[in-house]
Amino acid sequence: MKGFLLTIISALLVILVLNVGYYKEWFQAKPLQYWTDFLKEKDDTLSIEGVMASRYGVAYTMSMRIKQVLEQKHVTNPVILFEPNSYLRDSLHLYPKIRVPEPAVFYYYTGLEGVWINSPDTGKASFLVRISSKGVGLDVIKTPEQRHQLLAFYKKYPPIL
């Protein structure tokens, strides 16, 4: 009987903790949501890339699309210049919904080299990823002058993560 009473108490304590203050909010938003996700995920047939796309979102999808396009064009050793995230924030108002990956993460996703506008390697940039509210474009940087113009334009937007 005493054991039974203690069992009731421990069950009540668990219920209390799960329902008190911020714990309730967190438990429902995180562990319970994760459980709901699990029920879906256990049956899905996503490939590894599919799982990564659903986890990493737009930045990953965009990166892989860039890789696909460059592979189709048989471009060797491309270096991709990204617009600064602060430009997406201040000028396009797309950030943080859309943000470009930092070069290290871009390399992890794609195996391709990327640079940001204040990188020491911007001189090697051969493509520019141009983002707008309509979509993402990949422009070829044909001449050093064009590269300088682009860098001068984006200079006022300091790179942010």
């Binding site: 930092e102 070069p103 940001w116 020491p120 993560l161």
Partner: peptide
Amino acid sequence: FFNIDLWTT
């Protein structure tokens, strides 16, 4: 990985 631009990290 060490050959790429790592200034952000």
